[in-house]
Design a binder for these strands. Structure first.
Lengths: 257, 257
DNA sequence: ACCTGAACACCGTTCAAGT
DNA sequence: ACCTGAACACCGTTCAAGT
């Protein structure tokens, strides 16, 4: 009864994963899924797509906490047990769901922009998509990095950064860094309500009331700090990253082998 | 029975949060906690610290999925109900726990380094701390950004970036961006086992077997891509960010008001 | 071959009752 | 004033039994 969850040290089987079912999200798992033709061959009343569709609307309308097997089954008018015919776990369901929910990353930026403008455009689009679907953001764990939609995004950004002058290794790292930053930005603001005007006021109060000896800068700049929004943070970080990539490209121009 | 979770659209009370208890992690909540002297005054057999200690060792040894009220109570030799005397929710417990688990951020980098080296040192330290405590990483949600330990980190990095020449607003955004990037980097690799040598092999197989028409770069550079590690990604992104901050500092030198 | 009903071992949270 | 026992309404997952 191992409930494997991200962040959990694996139960450490005595014999190291000797032919154990691969965990959802690993390369082995994504590979194994493709060579399972039997699963989808038969015509059936309930399909995996229908399950994922129901899960997606549930996630969007009622949030991550409402994404239960029972609720999904209810939405589909079947029993919970039926779901396990299309999915081995809840974890597997979430992995498939999130890969699918990430599809927006394949949207193509306006033509005529240079690589940096395109990268910024895509990063902003991805962020806005996640902000509109906070349930999706809260479930992102990296397990979807090898899913078809993520791979499409990777192909796109590799093209972008290699075209800009980076070698494949650096292009891959740059693309991942950008995605990492977008996800971190959304994730670090999930529990907060900066949209709530009260939050900004309370934040100011909090900074102001700190011990001035221990937190001089927080006290001194309380008003300014309370007003720095998640959008501000994102734009500053995004520009810094792209500036850094630009420098990296110029460097590898010089040290080109 | 609202189970408010990050990523969940708030249940939308008809009257907008009219004197409702603030959600854990909001500025109002952190503020309210301080002006609650009665809670900790009395000598009691079970203290909040003891609860959080037990929760922490549970999280580290058995992972996030094992962090249940029952298990915490068992570890302390009390009943679950007793825990609710020190904590209103599981959510509140997690918020307090994560703030405390983040204390490493207050470690001070070696003297004599310039601001960029110090920032890099702290970022790496924070990342390594999170990698050693994946359970903590998986629970980070931004609700701890206003906790005492995060504020200490903020005071420190504000000092660093203001000292380097940024105004308070930009310094705050830069500091947050860096933290965002570290967290995103750890979080996006939570579900994966890059330590597993098999994973790299499977990843190569996965890239190689893509449709060459749709994913030409993935197929072409499969071997290289399969070997880019999370460490590589992190270092590339970290350097890019710091390079970007350096440029930002030079710019604000010029346009100083 | 597919789906169901009913159960199992868990959750977080509450509250009257004990001391 | 503090803690407990026992319950409540939920979870994910399994499996014999139905069709």
């Amino acid at each position: 009864m191992t409930k494997a969850t991200a962040g959990e040290p694996p139960p450490e089987d005595p014999r190291k994963n000797q032919r154990a079912e691969p965990r959802p999200g690993t390369a082995a798992w994504w590979l194994a899924r493709e060579s399972e033709p039997a699963r989808q061959r038969r015509r059936r009343s309930l399909t995996l797509d229908a399950v994922l569709d129901a899960a997606m609307t549930l996630l969007d309308t009622r949030g991550a906490a409402a994404l239960t097997m029972r609720n999904i089954a209810d939405a589909l008018g079947c029993t919970q047990a039926s779901l396990y015919r299309h999915v081995r776990n809840r974890e597997e369901l979430v992995t498939l769901l999130i890969d699918r929910a990430i599809a927006v990353a394949s949207a193509v930026p306006p033509d005529g922009a240079d690589w940096a403008e395109k990268a910024a455009w895509s990063a902003r689009l991805f962020r806005e998509h996640l902000l509109r679907h906070p349930g999706v953001a809260s479930l992102l764990r990296g397990t979807e990095r090898l899913g078809p939609n993520s791979l499409a995004g990777m192909q796109y950004s590799l093209d972008l950064f290699i075209g800009a002058g980076l070698n494949p290794r650096l292009a891959s790292a740059a693309a991942s860094s950008l995605a990492t930053f977008v996800l971190g930005s959304v994730h670090l603001n999930l529990g907060l309500d900066m949209s709530d005007p009260e939050e900004s006021r309370h934040r100011r109060l909090l900074f102001r009331s700190r011990d001035a000896a221990a937190f001089p800068l927080l006290v001194q700049h309380a008003d300014t700090l309370a007003e720095v929004s998640s959008d501000d943070e994102f734009e500053v970080g995004l520009n810094a990253l792209l500036t850094g990539f630009r420098a990296l490209i110029q460097n590898s121009d010089i040290t080109r082998d």
